[in-house]
Design a protein around this nucleic acid. Sequence first.
DNA 1: AGGCCACGCCACGACAGAAC
DNA 2: GTTCTGTCGTGGCGTGGCCT
Length: 283
Amino acid sequence: MLHRTFCHAPGVGPSLEARLWAAGFHDWDAVLAVSPADLPVPPARRGLLRQTVEESRERLAAGTMEDVAWFAARLPAREAWRLWSSFRDQAAYVDIETTGLGIGEDHITTIACQDATGLRTFVHGQTLDDFRSALDHCRLLVTFNGKCFDAPCIERQLDMPLPMAHLDLRYPLKKAGLRGGLKVIEKTLGLDRGELDGVDGFAAVLLWQGYRATGDARWLETLLSYNAADVLSLERLSARTHNLLVEGTPFDLLEQLPEPMPPANPIPAHQDIVREVLRRMGK
DNA sequence: AGGCCACGCCACGACAGAAC
DNA sequence: GTTCTGTCGTGGCGTGGCCT
């Protein structure tokens, strides 16, 4: 979808982009194939549009982290979803758990990261520092509400800059009509958390506390299972977001993509631990 | 419950095209 | 050439909603 995008050019908003599409300029090649005078945009904007399209073609072909970040910086936030189909192979889906909502002394307890190489988890006091190199090959960071929560936490607590493009699914999903938190949206799409049903972010705090208090690895494993579940659905949600938002363009049929089922969660959740946590939560 | 970001709304400026 | 009108993009501000 990115190669059909013009609203990242200065002076081109939703209206002008729609005018270009309606006039048959369906991708960058079509714009470069005609003289600037034939473009259906105000004369003062033709030069910059052509220049942006030329640079876009080069940057999409190069596809370095800087190139992807260049697109992300120029796209209006509401159109950031268009990055995903072009860079999904270099995407990393990330979610963190913490001891709270960042008030006072709260810190990251675990991180789950899924990318082309598979699922990895990182634990405070054990392997958390390894996360610093986990995103070395990542061109596109994908999260849910990560712009507000996960990314600032990681940057602040691990002192780890995140310069790559960042797609926060919360906003495009809302634009596509899917509101509410991650679990609510998963249920709407028929995705089942299985034995982790009812476990939420606050439960994750209790799971960490239980692990610290008992040293029992089953508490940690259940926490990691929950953390993993949060990232394993993100690729599917990204595809659904893409497909729903592509429906609002003239390229609905051309750009629809298969929606992969989330992989099975490789980390077991222990039922007795889940029951105990839900009991402590009054559920 | 705190922090953070995008969104919605509005006002404003730039520009193109029409009318005179 | 000037003026008016409509369209479009941009920036500022307040607010809602999501994370653990």
